Computed example of a mutant assay.
Amino acid sequence: MVTVEVCIGSACYVKGSNEVVTILQELIKEKGWEDQVNVKGAFCMQVCTQGLGLRVNGKQLLGVGLHNVKEVLLQEITAALA
């Protein structure tokens, strides 16, 4: 099981973390990962200046924004499932 944590703190929310959740849910459905990926909300990850707060299996992802989130999550989740 892969765990993806999305920061729902105020700074990340303003940057679009709610949209990230929607993108992530669509990606999971598109790839058929419903039984393999668990999505969780998390509070501040202290990376606000380096992009949205996202972790995959505890690995902090940096430099992620709405412009590249789908590609980054696809790469990270695929690698974690391998």
Rank of each mutant, 00 (worst) to 15 (best):
V2N: 08
T3Q: 14
V4F: 13
V4E: 13
E5Y: 10
I8P: 07
I8N: 15
G9I: 09
S10Y: 05
S10R: 15
S10G: 05
S10Q: 15
A11E: 10
A11G: 05
C12W: 04
Y13N: 12
V14S: 15
V14Y: 13
K15Y: 13
K15S: 13
G16F: 02
S17M: 02
S17H: 00
N18A: 14
E19Q: 14
V20F: 09
V20Q: 01
V21H: 06
V21F: 01
V21I: 12
T22M: 09
T22K: 09
I23E: 00
L24S: 04
Q25D: 12
L27M: 07
K31L: 09
K31G: 02
G32S: 04
W33S: 02
D35N: 14
Q36Y: 08
V37L: 02
V37K: 00
N38P: 01
V39S: 00
C44R: 09
M45K: 11
Q46W: 12
Q46S: 15
V47M: 00
T49D: 07
Q50L: 11
G51F: 07
G51H: 13
G51A: 10
L52I: 08
L52S: 06
G53D: 03
L54E: 05
V56S: 06
V56C: 08
V56N: 13
K59A: 11
Q60W: 00
L62Y: 13
G63P: 07
G65N: 07
L66C: 06
L66Y: 02
V69K: 01
V69T: 07
V69W: 01
V72K: 11
V72N: 00
L73M: 07
Q75I: 00
E76A: 00
I77V: 13
I77H: 03
A79K: 15
A80F: 10
A80K: 07
A82Y: 02
